[in-house]
Amino acid sequence: MQLLAGDEAPTVANVNPEGAGDVLLVCEHASLTLPRALGTLGLGPEALVAHIAWDPGALAVARQMSRSLDAHLIHQNYSRLAYDCNRPPESDDAMPALSEIYKIPGNQDIPTDERDARIAEIYTPFKAALEKTIAARKAAGRKTVLVTVHSFTPIYKGNHRSVEIGILHDSDSRIADVMLEEGGRRGGYDIRRNEPYGPADGVTHTLKLHGLENGLANVMIEVRNDLIANEAGQEVVASFLVDLLRKSMETTT
């Protein structure tokens, strides 16, 4: 099976690829677009624009950060309902049959050829793009700090989340530690470590595969999406995060 037609968007998008900054930004859940071959996956209009399909506001924040940091940003052009690029192929959450309160009919019992096509045409090119970029930066002797940008829903399975910004890490907490300390000192947001998700939830795949395995300082940022629902909020949050990142890089890299 071929998943993507020739006139559909490429899997990977690069923003400011010539950026001279030390940060490499990644946004795995940037888009809610589904490949045409998958139709609507049996979902209604409400679900197709909900958080299960993408991270609302995350790409806009990442773009703002890219401009401020002169950072290369790599993001995904397809919905995580087709393939979640922050999950390895063996993970059930890579092509979730159930997400939050939604059952996803088109992800139930996916035929092998379709599953293989999703991996080959979405995950593999995204993984390869990150590998190639990091290898090129290493070869050029460039410092790299890997930063992934996400958003989360304020209400999860009927429960309100009071946390506003999550600073997530796996076994390397260097960047996260300083960001949390600096964020707490500045105030203004409810900032927490490894919330509303953490390594046990399988959310650090990109950090582990592309950060830890390459010896790169790394961090994952989660922003509650009601804070970044419009341009003004996106600018404020992006500026705050950039300041925290700059402080952490001064201290740890």
Results as ranks from 00 to 15, higher is better:
residue 1 M to A: 07
residue 2 Q to I: 06
residue 7 D to N: 13
residue 10 P to Q: 09
residue 11 T to F: 06
residue 13 A to P: 01
residue 13 A to W: 05
residue 16 N to Y: 07
residue 17 P to S: 04
residue 17 P to Q: 06
residue 17 P to F: 10
residue 19 G to E: 07
residue 19 G to F: 02
residue 23 V to T: 10
residue 25 L to G: 01
residue 25 L to S: 02
residue 27 C to M: 07
residue 27 C to V: 01
residue 28 E to K: 03
residue 30 A to S: 09
residue 33 T to G: 02
residue 35 P to I: 09
residue 36 R to K: 06
residue 37 A to K: 11
residue 39 G to H: 12
residue 41 L to E: 05
residue 42 G to Y: 06
residue 42 G to V: 04
residue 46 E to S: 05
residue 47 A to Q: 10
residue 47 A to F: 12
residue 52 I to T: 08
residue 55 D to M: 03
residue 58 A to I: 00
residue 58 A to E: 00
residue 58 A to K: 01
residue 60 A to F: 00
residue 62 A to N: 10
residue 64 Q to I: 03
residue 66 S to W: 11
residue 68 S to I: 02
residue 69 L to K: 00
residue 69 L to H: 00
residue 70 D to I: 12
residue 72 H to F: 14
residue 73 L to W: 00
residue 73 L to P: 00
residue 73 L to G: 01
residue 77 N to D: 08
residue 78 Y to M: 10
residue 80 R to S: 01
residue 80 R to G: 10
residue 84 D to Y: 03
residue 84 D to C: 02
residue 84 D to W: 06
residue 86 N to M: 08
residue 86 N to T: 03
residue 88 P to T: 07
residue 88 P to L: 11
residue 89 P to W: 13
residue 91 S to A: 13
residue 93 D to W: 08
residue 93 D to G: 14
residue 95 M to T: 13
residue 96 P to I: 08
residue 96 P to L: 02
residue 96 P to Q: 09
residue 99 S to W: 14
residue 99 S to C: 15
residue 102 Y to W: 12
residue 103 K to G: 08
residue 104 I to E: 07
residue 104 I to G: 07
residue 104 I to T: 05
residue 104 I to Q: 01
residue 108 Q to M: 06
residue 111 P to V: 07
residue 114 E to I: 14
residue 116 D to A: 15
residue 116 D to Q: 14
residue 122 I to G: 09
residue 122 I to D: 10
residue 122 I to Q: 09
residue 123 Y to F: 15
residue 125 P to I: 12
residue 125 P to R: 12
residue 129 A to I: 03
residue 129 A to E: 06
residue 131 E to I: 00
residue 132 K to N: 08
residue 133 T to K: 00
residue 135 A to D: 13
residue 135 A to M: 06
residue 139 A to K: 10
residue 140 A to M: 04
residue 142 R to G: 06
residue 142 R to W: 04
residue 143 K to E: 05
residue 143 K to C: 11
residue 147 V to L: 07
residue 150 H to R: 01
residue 152 F to E: 03
residue 152 F to I: 07
residue 153 T to G: 08
residue 154 P to W: 15
residue 154 P to D: 10
residue 155 I to L: 14
residue 155 I to E: 12
residue 160 H to Q: 05
residue 166 G to M: 05
residue 169 H to W: 15
residue 171 S to H: 15
residue 171 S to N: 12
residue 171 S to Y: 14
residue 172 D to V: 15
residue 177 D to M: 08
residue 178 V to F: 10
residue 178 V to G: 11
residue 184 G to P: 02
residue 184 G to V: 05
residue 186 R to M: 09
residue 186 R to G: 08
residue 187 G to P: 02
residue 188 G to Y: 07
residue 188 G to W: 08
residue 189 Y to P: 06
residue 190 D to L: 01
residue 191 I to W: 01
residue 195 E to H: 12
residue 196 P to I: 06
residue 197 Y to I: 02
residue 200 A to I: 10
residue 202 G to Q: 06
residue 212 L to W: 01
residue 215 G to L: 15
residue 216 L to W: 11
residue 217 A to Y: 13
residue 218 N to C: 07
residue 220 M to L: 14
residue 223 V to R: 01
residue 224 R to M: 01
residue 226 D to Q: 04
residue 229 A to I: 11
residue 232 A to M: 10
residue 233 G to V: 05
residue 236 V to D: 13
residue 241 L to R: 01
residue 242 V to R: 06
residue 244 L to C: 15
residue 245 L to I: 09
residue 247 K to Q: 15
residue 248 S to I: 08
residue 250 E to W: 03
residue 251 T to S: 08
